[in-house]
């Protein structure tokens, strides 16, 4: 078809007939997906797909290609597709990433065939394919009261704070609740009762907010045996966060607040 694929006709022949023409500069890559259909399968299993990929494609584009032209039953979440909504966290080549933020140019093998593995995030029940049940994750999120708690009469204008006071918790306001951090944590995989990094990040966002009055209450919740002390500082969460939040740093700040502030 195209220059890059002309010596590879046997694979292009495998492509479905209704697929769009392969764009110039595309390379065939193998996408290996850990799949599960609750109506048929006993357990998870691997399936491989050959798809054309451009260096400017994201892993999400390959998943779309598979879903639209090869196997319509492939199930995964995605909403905005631009790294803002946090729907498409999955394990790509062994690490938690947003499928819409991983560029193919960073995935191509230096020599030979490129294989990309895609798995559902660990530690949460897999409902179907890459779609996991997020409820345990959101239960932990709700438990730390992720909203402003105040007392007394509401002010007639905004609740003001200084630039420095706002700066104190700026990093943890960036969370999009994608669960990439929580499901990268070895403690979360094995225990299942740990609040997890994301819940602590969102507690940090209010604990260090000068306008909030429930600091002590949240610190008490996180002082629990399933709270911050479960953290073993493996830094997997910091590495996994698609928003670049210094997750481990936030957890350590909550630990230090518990040790030294009271």
């Amino acid at each position: 078809m195209t220059a890059t694929l002309s010596n590879n006709d046997s694979t292009t022949a495998d492509l479905p007939s209704d697929a769009p023409p392969i764009p110039e500069g595309a390379t065939m890559v193998t996408v290996k997906i850990e799949r599960f259909n609750p109506e048929v399968d006993e357990d998870l299993h691997w399936e491989s797909y050959r798809v054309p990929a451009l260096p400017t494609d994201r892993v999400l584009n390959l998943l779309h290609y598979i879903k639209w032209y090869i196997d319509g039953t492939l199930t995964f979440r995605r909403s905005c597709a631009h790294g803002v909504c946090g729907s498409d966290a999955m394990r790509i080549n062994g690490v938690n990433r947003l499928a819409c933020k991983v560029l193919l140019k960073d995935m191509f093998a230096k020599s030979g065939e490129t294989t990309i593995t895609v798995e559902p995030i660990k530690g949460l029940p897999v409902n179907k394919d890459l779609l996991v049940d997020m409820e345990p994750f959101f239960e932990a999120y709700r438990a730390i009261k992720p909203y402003l708690v105040t007392s007394g009469n509401e002010p007639t204008r905004e609740r003001t704070q200084s630039i420095a006071e706002r700066e104190r918790f700026d990093d943890t306001t960036k969370c999009i609740l994608c669960a990439a951090c929580t499901t990268s944590c070895p403690v979360y995989w094995s225990e299942g009762s740990y609040f997890g990094p994301a819940a602590i990040v969102n507690a940090h966002r209010f604990i260090f907010d000068s306008r909030d009055e429930a600091t002590e209450e949240r610190l008490d919740i996180l002082n629990d045996q399933d709270g911050v002390w479960r953290c073993r500082t493996t830094f997997n969460c910091t590495d996994a966060c698609p928003r670049g939040i210094q997750v481990t740093k936030a957890i350590q700040e909550v630990k230090r607040a518990l040790m030294f502030r009271r």
Partner: peptide, 19 residues
């Protein structure tokens, strides 16, 4: 019920050096 759904096992997690 939630407990009956499998959890992902898959490959070894390629974690941070800290892990």
């Amino acid at each position: 019920p939630r407990e009956e759904y499998p959890r992902a096992k898959g490959t070894l997690y390629r974690g941070d050096l800290g892990m």
